[in-house]
Amino acid sequence: MNPIMNQDPAAPSSTPAPAPPPRAAAKPVALSVRDLRAGYAGGAAVLKGVSLDISERRVTAIIGPSGCGKSTLIRCLNRLHEALPGAFCDGQIMLGGRSVLDWDPVLLRREVGMVFQRPNPFPTMNIFDNVAAGLTLNGERDRAKIAERVESSLRRAALWDEVKDKLKSPGTGLSGGQQQRLCIARALAVEPRVLLMDEPCSALDPVATARIEELLLEIKETLTVVIVTHNMQQAARVSEYTAFMLSGELVEFGPTQGLFTKPADKRTEDYVTGRFG
């Protein structure tokens, strides 16, 4: 299968760029995935040879119907997938020129953070400690430095103003949308290169969703984001690149605007127009 990759949507469109090689994103590349196959114990492969390059400091959205392998793909990127009993994964994933297999999984997950579908603040910790958790686990003992990082992370997650007067309150006492931003702040606190988001807004109301989307547009200035979403309008709004997956294969990958206005593959057209099924 040859997914289609077009030119960088953020690059000036002054001259028609020559067609880049398949699966080559605009440089620099944050994560490079080649021929990734993955699955679960006793089952067929969920990912059947996926290759794509995730551009640095861009938002890449992954869309596709349930069961297409979107979540499995991003869980392979920080080696969460392999933590499941019987799960298998082969192919190549490169982060910063090194295979992720050569990384210590704990260090890798510091570089490649993750935010899940349901907000999951640590229930026994207050707001401050939730954000500081990653830093203290990594051995940081300087309280002033920790406090500074907690504040900057909460500010980047657009939560500071709402929680600055109750940092000692439990994280689980916040609203769903605030809890999700708390989780984003927690992920940002360890200064990852990449943030993976697995349907981060699916449990949130439209207002909380809009806040997360605004936040994404802010943090992508300094961070690479990969977001799995069922909400195609969300993919269209927040991402520069979109990958469409179907039955474990990458059908099409390219600039979001092109994929939503003139998809190259009929299956993508059927999916984004709701004809699928």
Binding site: F260, T261, E269, V272, T273
Partner: peptide
């Protein structure tokens, strides 16, 4: 409907 692709065009 927030149309996309051919519908949007």
């Amino acid at each position: 409907h927030q149309p996309a692709a051919g519908d949007l065009r």
